[in-house]
């Protein structure tokens, strides 16, 4: 190491000396002096650039972080509350919606709703359907209608809250009577008897399906029931 290199290294970093540099310093008083000069100048600069640190700085740094943390926590809970409110609102909305969609819960209410729905069209449909047509539809329920003393004037599939059912309208001697053939597996609660201001109805559970009969006259219902039970057979 020549002298120039020694000085260059000391000027670059006088604080982290290699073993080689330390060895060299020990042997050369001039270099030692040079090193000391550098350190002294550094010390002067350091003093120059050491304005008094405000006493409150450390404290205020800790305080600011504390405040920030609290703010974050508060914001977290605010978000939580907002989220909970949204969930509650949606739940309420969904509940309302489902009540609106599936307002009628029991078999009777559902049947009456269907009857009222078809009521306006009944007057125009007084032509009898052929027994073969009706039996084709009844076949889905493993049922068969034999010749009887009433006519079927309407036969169509309908939806009993998700269960595919058959909606029949019979023209009996006593008047019109509606019969629903509902599968046993359905989501409605069974009601043996039901009525409202205009109609009354009865449900009979057979081994294959539930028969719901609705009519506006008690007499029609009573006689019709017997007629239906006599003529409608379920396959075993």
């Amino acid at each position: 190491m020549d002298e120039l290199e020694v000085r260059r290294r000391l000027l670059t970093d006088p604080y982290r000396l290699s073993a080689e540099q330390q060895e060299q310093l020990k042997q050369d008083p001039d270099s030692q002096q040079f090193h000391q000069d550098i350190l002294q100048l550094d010390q002067q600069i350091r003093q120059l650039l050491s304005p008094p640190v405000p006493n409150t700085l450390e404290h205020s740094l800790l305080l600011q972080q504390h405040k920030y943390k609290q703010q974050q926590q508060k914001r977290f809970y605010q978000h939580l509350v907002a989220l909970a409110a949204s969930v509650a609102f949606l739940a309420g909305f969904a509940l309302n919606w489902s009540f609106f969609l599936y307002g009628s819960q029991s078999l009777g209410e559902n049947s009456l709703a269907h009857v009222y729905h078809e009521e306006p069209y009944m007057q125009q449909r007084m032509t009898a359907l052929s027994l073969a047509d009706v039996n084709l539809k009844l076949a889905d329920f493993d049922a068969q209608l034999s010749a009887s003393d009433y006519n079927v004037v309407f036969a169509n599939y309908c939806n009993f809250r998700g269960s595919r059912s058959l909606h029949l309208v019979l023209d009996t001697e006593q008047g019109l009577m509606t019969v629903f053939v509902v599968p046993k597996e359905n989501s409605l609660s069974f009601e043996a008897e039901f009525h409202d201001d205009k109609y009354q109805g009865r449900s009979i559970a057979t081994h294959k399906a539930i028969l719901v009969m609705v009519s506006d006259k008690a007499e029609t219902l009573q006689r019709g029931e017997q007629q239906v039970l006599n003529s409608l057979q379920f396959k075993a």
Partner: peptide, 11 residues
Amino acid sequence: LVHLYHADLYR
């Protein structure tokens, strides 16, 4: 971090 370095950072 605050305790050890705030003075140097301030300078």
